[in-house]
Computed example of a mutant assay.
Amino acid sequence: MSGESATDYIQHHLTNLNLDLTEGTVEPGATGFWNLHLDTLIMSFGLGALFCYIFWLAARQATSGTPGRLQNAVEAIVEFVDKTVSETFHAKSRLIAPLALTIFCWVFLANLMDLIPIDLVPSILSALGVSYWKVLPSVDLNFTFGLSLSVLVLIIAYGIMGKGVGGFFKEFLTHPFGIWLLPFNLVLNLVEFLAKPISLALRLFGNLYAAELIFLLISLLPWWIQWALGTPWAIFHILVVPLQAFIFMVLTVVYLAMAYERH
Results as ranks from 00 to 15, higher is better:
A73L: 03
G68A: 14
R60C: 14
C105H: 01
R94F: 09
L47K: 04
T84C: 07
P67F: 02
R94L: 14
L99D: 04
S44G: 06
P67Y: 03
G68Q: 04
M43W: 00
G48F: 07
T88K: 05
R94S: 13
G46L: 06
K83E: 12
A59L: 08
K92M: 12
C52Y: 09
S86D: 08
F89Q: 05
L101S: 15
R69V: 00
W56A: 10
L50T: 02
L70R: 02
E75R: 07
V78R: 13
E75K: 10
F45P: 00
T88M: 01
Y53N: 00
I96W: 10
T40Q: 04
I96D: 11
V78Y: 13
N72T: 11
L41C: 06
I54V: 10
V85S: 13
Q61W: 10
S64I: 12
C52I: 10
L41I: 13
T84Y: 09
M43F: 01
C52N: 01
F45T: 01
Q71K: 10
A100Q: 08
F104C: 02
H90D: 09
I77Q: 02
G46F: 03
F89A: 02
T84V: 11
I54Q: 00
K83I: 03
A76L: 14
T84K: 02
T84E: 05
K92S: 15
G48Y: 03
I103P: 00
T66G: 06
T40Y: 03
A97V: 15
W106H: 04
S86G: 12
V78F: 03
K92L: 15
V78Q: 12
L57P: 02
W56K: 08
A76H: 05
I54T: 08
V74F: 01
A49I: 13
F89D: 06
N72S: 14
I103M: 05
A73R: 01
A73V: 05
I96F: 08
I54G: 00
F80M: 15
Q71A: 05
A91L: 15
Y53I: 10
L99R: 01
A97W: 07
F104M: 01
T66D: 15
S44H: 07
S44A: 15
T63I: 02
L70N: 00
A58W: 01
Q61E: 09
P67G: 07
